[in-house]
Nucleic acid binder design. Sequence first.
DNA 1: TATATCATGTAATCGGTTACATGATTAA
DNA 2: TTAATCATGTAACCGATTACATGATATA
Lengths: 209, 209
Amino acid sequence: MDRPDAYPITYSVLGLLAFMGPMSGYDIKQLFDHMLSPMWGAAHSQIYNELRRMKELEWVEMQREEQENRPDRKVYSITSKGREALTVWQGQPPSVPQIRDELLLKVMFGSFAPPNALIANLKTSILYHEQRLAEYRQNLQHIPTQGASLRVGSRPNPYAVTDEGDTFLTLITHFAIDMEKTYLRWLYEILDVMEGRRTEYTQEERTTP
Amino acid sequence: MDRPDAYPITYSVLGLLAFMGPMSGYDIKQLFDHMLSPMWGAAHSQIYNELRRMKELEWVEMQREEQENRPDRKVYSITSKGREALTVWQGQPPSVPQIRDELLLKVMFGSFAPPNALIANLKTSILYHEQRLAEYRQNLQHIPTQGASLRVGSRPNPYAVTDEGDTFLTLITHFAIDMEKTYLRWLYEILDVMEGRRTEYTQEERTTP
DNA sequence: TATATCATGTAATCGGTTACATGATTAA
DNA sequence: TTAATCATGTAACCGATTACATGATATA
């Protein structure tokens, strides 16, 4: 079997170029950290790799912007070939989602932890997820409100319509917020249990989901 | 900076050996797929790698069980050095959790999808997560009910106590169930939106989390 | 008859992370 | 004065996936 020449990370970068317009690798990295963090992560080195890969595939083209006192900006934009590739990708079934969460492993094997280690790790994790939640809530405020209505379904052409894109961004942000809330609720409950205050999560599934 | 000689995947395998007792690589793979799937995934080839790595570190030892007509079982068990490593690991802060979910990317860039592609992908995803949810609910039934009480906090020794381990397993399983429920609720809502029935997720955050 | 289970491993490849490298500007 | 921001890239390494390899037994 031949290996594909593009992967989810490739389409992430391509999608951002289609969604937000021409950008430099540096700009893409910023967007990754702020917009795509609930979906996919990437180091800047990998983003530059994907840009090179896609340039060879002619999915993107590059314009050099000269600057003084710092490296030239290389501004990438999506080509028609690139848009085609995005559409083809959308027609393929999604791969199985990956979870790699070390905190969960540490809870799972919590019976091998020194007395206060687990509590400390839970607190670290709570801080992290509270920050995430706050960021996502802030992001919600910064999404343009183009009428705020949902007009999907009868679409004249398959390419980006601005307010439609914003709808999807809003949906994703709500997803991220919902997941962080659920995660945090669970973290606080364990912390309570570990600190010996309450007894929650008995054998039956709880009634309040 | 020196690289560590163990990673979360290493401790996953080590933790399973501590938690469940001596096992073969094959057994470990089964447990990975059924117990650890909400936390970390691994191919069987990687598990065999980690076992070799840990044998060199003397964190595990191996007993060969001869069999007829099929390869010998190699049964691994954790050593005291291994238990020490587990405890040290528990004292270190957890790494940042990774999310790699292609479905979310496809929703994010949904404005570049052919008319029915996104709906098809949402349905695929719903099937997948419904299966997961069903499995996790079944898992809950199979966790022993050693008194079903939570006795954490005043622990006489830092090593595994059976019913305590079961408590952590129950906690993790509840986590997985809660997350799948939240995920599914969101998937069904988007599907509704995409099929043009309802209008949900407006600019304000919903009151029902 | 064909697939699934049991049982182990190697080889190849690539995705992804970390570290190295440079250097000016601006804000705390 | 220290750190952050802007801006790009390379090098090394390893975690993780996929494919290759073998072969008996039991079940649909």
